[in-house]
Design a protein around this nucleic acid. Structure first.
Length: 269
DNA sequence: AAACGCAGCAACCGCCTCTAT
DNA sequence: TATAGAGGCGGTTGCTGCGTT
């Protein structure tokens, strides 16, 4: 038996919120709060909206402390760093950025930051091509200066994109995978001391932090990219580097190379 | 000036976890 | 212990505005 819907979609209003609705919701919440029940809130507040819709509107738009405007370089770095460490846990990432919502961070990543980082990788590649000595130090140097990261984020993960993106550019230009492996290996070694990181490390009420439990709860998707992303979200460090790398390859239209386990094989798995 | 394409973002959808009973 | 309902989350969609042709 399926779950009953939280509201009757044929009755409640959907789509963009009017200024009047915003005012009604804001006034009600500032006066009464949610009283621990979003579902009944619209009725009490006199709104013909789904409770979930009210919650989303409040959290993403109406809350007084929400920060508007462009993301700063520092925020970019936090997002990149945390994405490397925990994957697309947008609520966790947003919790490290005061005034930013998970929806904002997610939209920003999908529309701008991902492209920005890829572009950074490509421009790095052009620069690297003009030198004879491509090494890990250079890869790390391609990352913008890092600002203070949360204490619970392993420092080792900070160079993730700096190591990955240049290689992505190399893949696109036909660099051999053997060379790729060789170049990437020392970069990975730095991850080897970090411990597996649990979602609970961030103190959220997020999804299960049990690896086996999480795996069993994965959506029925055959997408390897999603699986890789998923692994990355649970384990920082070595595997994260490999898996994000793999995800990026596919996410940006690269194909997995012949002998698809080459990364794992290549790094002693 | 009109048509088209693209980027940004608000909002929705469906799934999962948590909690009360 | 099992079940149902609510909250929370990430992925996706679709509207809007802007730039380009």
């Amino acid at each position: 038996m399926g779950r009953a819907p939280c509201c009757d979609k044929s009755i409640v209003k959907r789509g963009p919120w009017s200024p009047e609705e915003d005012t009604t919701l804001k006034n009600y919440l500032q006066k009464h709060g949610t009283a621990g029940n979003w579902i009944s809130l619209p009725t009490k507040a006199g709104l013909n909206r789904c409770g979930k819709s009210c919650r989303l509107r409040w959290l993403n738009y109406l809350k007084p402390d929400i920060k508007r405007g462009s993301f700063t370089e520092g925020e970019d770095n936090v997002i990149s760093t945390l994405y490397c460490s925990i994957g697309s846990r947008w609520s966790v990432i947003a919790s490290q950025l005061p005034g930013r919502t998970d929806n904002d961070v997610k939209n920003y990543w999908n529309t701008k930051l991902k492209k920005k980082l890829l572009a950074a990788g490509k421009s790095y590649n052009v620069a690297a091509r003009n030198t004879s000595d491509l090494n890990v130090a250079q890869l790390s140097a391609s990352v913008p200066p890092k600002i203070k990261t949360p204490d619970h984020v392993p420092e080792t993960s900070s160079s993730c994109f700096g190591g990955i993106l240049p290689h992505l550019a190399d893949v696109s230009s036909g660099q051999s995978f053997d060379q790729l492996k060789q170049d990437f290996e020392p970069c990975n070694r730095q991850f080897s001391h970090s411990k597996p990181m649990q979602v609970s490390d961030f103190g959220t009420s997020g999804r299960s932090s049990s690896l086996s439990g999480e795996v069993s709860n994965l959506p029925n998707s055959s997408s390897l990219a999603q699986l890789d992303q998923y692994h990355c979200s649970l384990w920082s460090g070595h595997e994260a580097g490999i898996n994000i790398y793999s995800e990026f390859l596919m996410g940006f239209g690269f194909e997995t190379p012949p002998g698809e386990n080459f990364l794992m094989d290549g790094f002693g798995y």
